[in-house]
Write a protein that binds this DNA or RNA. Structure first.
Lengths: 316, 316
DNA sequence: CCATTAACTTGACTTAGTCAACTATTTTGG
DNA sequence: CCAAAATAGTTGACTAAGTCAAGTTAATGG
């Protein structure tokens, strides 16, 4: 396991840049087409965007609108004045700040927005229904990906959370471990198979009193995991510690190991043991920092490589 | 598993429509941001789009530009006149039609476009380099998908391709099968564990002469799989047939089964057998259509449910 | 309590885009 | 082959969309 303290930011290739630019041109046109759909309505695209925001969010101020939609403050002011003259919105000065006011659609405003909203809905429905259902899902999934990647990657307040195993996790862990070690160390598919075997056995013989799993999740995605299995009354074994490259540097590895140690102590185990390979230096640092001692090493040939296995123990 | 023989055009659900609309709003803003980048240049976004087209395509007419960029003919005429006055473009009347002329950038035009192009390139490069390399690829892939689906939908010539197993596949299959059967039939995590066990054993004892796997891949994603394992000299067993919901209706399930049958015949097996559950009706239709006969049924309790297992055989 | 900043507002302006009428060609249908 | 219709492009007259800078009022941090 390689731990970077900063996720890498890499200079993109020309082909990637060109693809993004092509997409931008394409979508500029696409939005132009959608805009045309509004032509017959009483509102411009920008007005419709403002109405949309007002219809879907509460307690907006003029500044909020300008910032979120990328509009000039003066322009927003005029738009709102126009809306107010037509009794589509009402403004109430904020108690906390007399310069600002909270803007809300009036009943008339909602009524004016409804057909607009409906047209837009129908237009998109028409667009989508040209595709078979499976493609519709692919489209939306890809859009969500784009939006997720380009959008405010507002670092989540809780950078990750730990939870127990659920359906789908073990497959994911098997895949990611298999791929990571194949990529970083050239291990072959037998490593992925080994992980599958370990996790299959873990689930099948799972004993909740003596065993436990922790999955680190971040924005709905698995970014790390660790497992404790019972070797004997006295000895627990820590297995399959792993952290996604994209989530390294957040202390997830350390936290997972700490959880294991805490659990093992609480259950009265005397020793926590683990097996790893010497090339996995980042993981080793975590074990050392947690107080594990190297017990023995032996060379072995596995996963298509010559490796040096290590056993580490921690007295609890 | 539901198999459609014609891709359905289905009325999209509200959640899909809302997701697309959210994306449209998001990207409208995104393009607005990119537009701001042009502010300091001598050209507006529309002018830049026209220049881009002129720089990258030959023999454009005014009508072509208007059509492809969604611009008013009068406006295009004026833009071109302005460019011509500044000696950025030259026009030559077409021999075939004296009303039209072919428009091309002059040297000065290319020189004026170059910094614009470079700025746009750099801007996109900056955007991309905020993401780690793997995310950059995910972004571009998703953009291509969106563009492919919404654009002049030239149906992909190869809707899917078959390939053998590679690292990461078995984890993915374990995950997806676990999740699908949990979702559709309420099976618990022991099913996922069973799939893990089967695939682990498949990889570990893999005998290329007698066994084989097929992964159906579409745009780089696994959308289906099937495995053949050797039970004896005479008998091959088909295992873990599965097609992603998003890729159903393309005949992938049928194709995977056909591949198995072809392989089993070629290797001289006498019987192809498989085990399934009666509730998996879509899979059963495939097996029946391929000539499999139901040999026996027995009730069993697995994966947290009462099920009826079925054995199907095909004489080769 | 004063200087600075933030949240608007307003006047004066430019740019972007639309619409309809027009000319010059080309295409089409009898 | 010709009249009518359509297409390519141009132009005048216009409106909508957006910008900029200077102003007013209120909040904030020493």
């Amino acid at each position: 396991m390689t731990i970077h303290h900063q996720p890498d930011r890499e200079a993109p290739g020309k082909d990637l840049i060109d693809a993004v630019r092509a997409f931008n041109r394409f979508y500029t046109r696409q939005i132009g087409l959608l805009d045309e759909g509004l032509l017959k309505s009483a509102f411009s695209l920008t007005e419709a965007r403002v109405l949309y925001e007002l219809a879907h969010r509460d307690d907006l101020t003029a500044t909020d609108l300008g910032r979120d939609l990328g509009l000039d403050a003066g322009y927003v002011s005029r738009l709102l004045k126009k809306f107010e003259r037509r009794h589509l919105i009402s403004r109430s000065t904020l108690a906390s700040d007399a310069r600002q006011s909270s803007i809300a659609l009036t009943k008339a405003g909602r009524e004016a927005f409804a057909p607009l909203n409906k047209d837009s809905h129908n237009q998109v429905a028409a667009l989508l229904s040209r595709l078979p259902a499976s493609e519709q899902h692919r489209l939306v999934k890809s859009m969500r990906t784009v939006q997720g990647l380009l959008g405010e990657s507002a670092e989540p307040k809780v950078p990750y959370l730990l939870r127990p195993l659920q359906v789908g996790d073990i497959g994911w862990i098997i895949r990611r471990q298999g791929m990571l070690y194949a990529q970083d160390y050239g291990w072959d598919e037998t490593y992925e198979a080994l992980v599958a075997e370990i996790l299959s056995a873990f689930v099948k013989s799972f004993d909740p009193k003596w065993e436990r799993s922790w999955i680190a999740e971040r924005e709905g995605e698995v970014v790390g995991s660790v497992f404790i299995v019972r070797k004997s009354d006295q000895v627990a074994k820590l297995r399959l510690l792993y952290v996604e490259p994209s989530a390294r540097g957040l202390g997830i590895g350390k936290r997972l190991v700490e959880e294991c140690i805490g659990f093992a102590r609480a259950r009265g185990y005397k020793t926590l043991t683990l097996w790893t390979n010497d090339i996995l230096t980042a993981a080793r640092h975590i074990y050392q920092a947690a107080g594990f001692k190297l017990i023995e090493e032996e060379a072995h040939h596995s996963f298509g490589k010559d490796l040096v296995g290590q056993t580490w123990d921690l007295d609890l």
